[in-house]
Lab assay of single mutants.
Amino acid sequence: SQVHIGNTTFTFDNPEKAQKYAEKYAKKKGLTVQKNGDVWTVE
């Protein structure tokens, strides 16, 4: 599972961890999370 934030990609061994990280980061920065398969993009 991966989380894309700008030009940075974070890889997680667990989809739940990836989703939590993406949502927490997005909330903190006032951004949105797009999910595509097991990839979350914060923008």
Rank of each mutant, 00 (worst) to 15 (best):
N14K: 07
E43M: 14
K24Q: 14
Y21D: 03
K28R: 10
I5T: 03
K24F: 14
V42T: 03
Y25A: 05
N7F: 12
N36F: 12
V33G: 01
Y21C: 11
A22S: 03
Q34R: 14
L31Q: 02
Q34C: 14
T8F: 15
N14C: 13
T41R: 08
Y21I: 05
K20N: 11
T11E: 07
D13W: 12
F10N: 01
H4N: 09
V39D: 09
I5L: 05
F12C: 04
K20F: 10
V42W: 05
K35L: 13
H4D: 05
S1A: 13
K35P: 00
N7Y: 12
L31Y: 12
F12I: 03
V33T: 03
K20I: 12
E16V: 11
V3Q: 02
Y21G: 01
G30E: 01
T32H: 07
K35W: 09
F12W: 04
W40G: 00
K20A: 13
K24C: 15
V33S: 02
V33R: 04
E23C: 14
K29W: 15
N7K: 12
D38Y: 10
W40E: 01
N14T: 15
K35F: 11
Q34L: 11
D38Q: 07
T32E: 05
W40L: 05
E16T: 08
K17W: 09
T8L: 15
T9E: 04
V42R: 01
V3S: 02
A26E: 00
G6Q: 06
N36H: 11
P15W: 08
K17V: 12
H4C: 15
H4M: 13
S1D: 04
T9S: 07
N7V: 07
D38G: 08
V3M: 03
E23D: 06
T9I: 15
V3D: 00
T9V: 15
K28G: 07
Y21F: 15
E43P: 05
P15H: 05
Q2F: 14
V33F: 07
N7T: 10
G37M: 03
K20Y: 12
V33P: 03
V39T: 12
F12M: 03
G37L: 04
N7P: 06
T9A: 06
K29A: 09
N36T: 09
Q19R: 14
I5M: 04
E43K: 13
P15K: 05
I5Q: 02
V39P: 01
T11Y: 15
D38E: 10
V39F: 08
V33D: 00
L31N: 01
E16G: 08
H4S: 08
I5C: 08
W40I: 03
K24G: 11
V39L: 07
K17C: 15
K28D: 11
T32N: 10
Q34F: 13
Q19P: 01
T9P: 02
A26L: 05
I5A: 04
L31T: 03
T41K: 06
G6L: 08
K28L: 12
T8A: 11
D38A: 08
V3C: 06
Q19N: 05
D38K: 07
E43L: 14
A26F: 05
P15N: 07
T32Y: 05
K20R: 13
A26N: 01
E43Q: 12
K27V: 04
K27W: 07
H4F: 09
L31D: 00
Y25W: 11
K24R: 13
V3E: 02
G30L: 02
D38T: 10
T41H: 10
A18K: 00
Y25Q: 04
G6K: 09
A18H: 00
L31W: 13
I5D: 02
E23F: 09
G6R: 10
N36D: 10
N14R: 06
V42F: 09
S1F: 15
G37A: 06
G6C: 15
T41N: 06
W40A: 01
Y21N: 00
A22I: 09
V39M: 11
A26W: 03
E16A: 12
G6Y: 11
E16Q: 11
Q2N: 07
V3H: 02
K24A: 15
E43F: 14
Q19Y: 11
S1M: 10
Q2D: 05
N7G: 11
V33C: 01
G30D: 03
T41E: 10
F12S: 03
Y21M: 08
G30P: 02
G6S: 06
K35A: 04
E16K: 12
A18D: 00
Q34Y: 14
N14E: 08
Q19H: 08
S1C: 15
Q34E: 07
W40N: 01
K27L: 07
A26P: 00
T8D: 08
N7A: 09
G6V: 06
K28W: 13
K17T: 13
E23T: 05
H4T: 10
V3L: 06
A26G: 04
K29M: 14
E16M: 11
V39S: 12
S1Q: 07
V42E: 00
I5K: 03
V42L: 07
K24W: 15
T41M: 10
A26S: 04
A26R: 02
K28S: 12
T9M: 13
K27D: 05
Q34D: 04
L31G: 05
Y25R: 02
T8I: 14
D13S: 13
I5F: 06
S1Y: 15
S1H: 14
F12L: 04
A18M: 01
V33E: 02
Q34A: 09
K17Y: 10
N36Q: 13
V39N: 11
V42Q: 00
A18R: 00
G30V: 00
G6T: 05
P15D: 09
T8W: 15
N36C: 12
K28P: 03
Y21E: 03
A26I: 03
K29T: 09
K27T: 06
K17F: 09
Q34V: 14
I5Y: 04
G30S: 04
I5H: 03
E16F: 10
D13A: 12
Y25P: 00
V3Y: 02
V3W: 03
F10E: 01
E16R: 09
P15T: 06
Q2I: 14
K17E: 15
